[in-house]
């Protein structure tokens, strides 16, 4: 299957991250892993680009970030754990409805029998 990359992906990244966080909280690398496995290897995304998205969503109060505490056994650089905020849940629902509407209309046109 062809890879999905660049602008085709960029426009939907916010909704994808929100949907990923609806499954449970996670840090950046974990979110990327979830996206990768949900995309079944078809998503071609430079992983660093996830962070500007996370910062934007956090600034919009759609997600909440918190540095992980030192209570774990893990060593190495600190990670920030993100979870969906109440506003984010509402926003995700709205985006899902928009997406369904979009695919219904555009899909109907694109897939119309010749």
């Amino acid at each position: 299957m062809d890879k999905i990359s660049g602008n085709a992906l960029r426009g939907h990244l916010d909704a994808m991250v929100l949907a990923t966080l609806a499954q449970g909280e996670g840090h950046g690398f974990e979110i990327m892993q979830r996206l990768g496995s949900a995309g079944r290897g078809a998503l071609e995304l430079k992983e660093g680009t996830l962070y500007p998205v996370l910062y934007r969503l956090e600034a919009a109060k759609l997600i909440v970030g918190k540095w992980e505490t030192g209570a774990t056994e893990r060593r190495g650089p600190r990670r920030r754990i993100y979870k969906l905020a109440r506003n984010g849940r509402r926003d995700l629902k709205r985006r899902q409805e928009q997406w369904r509407h979009f695919t219904q209309i555009i899909g109907g046109i694109v897939e119309a029998p010749a």
């Binding site: 950046g28 690398f29 992983e47 660093g48 962070y51 650089p77 600190r78 990670r79 920030r80």
Partner: peptide, 11 residues
């Protein structure tokens, strides 16, 4: 810096 470093390390 911290988040990118954590990500690059994990990768």
């Amino acid at each position: 810096r911290e988040e990118l470093l954590a990500h690059a390390t994990a990768a």
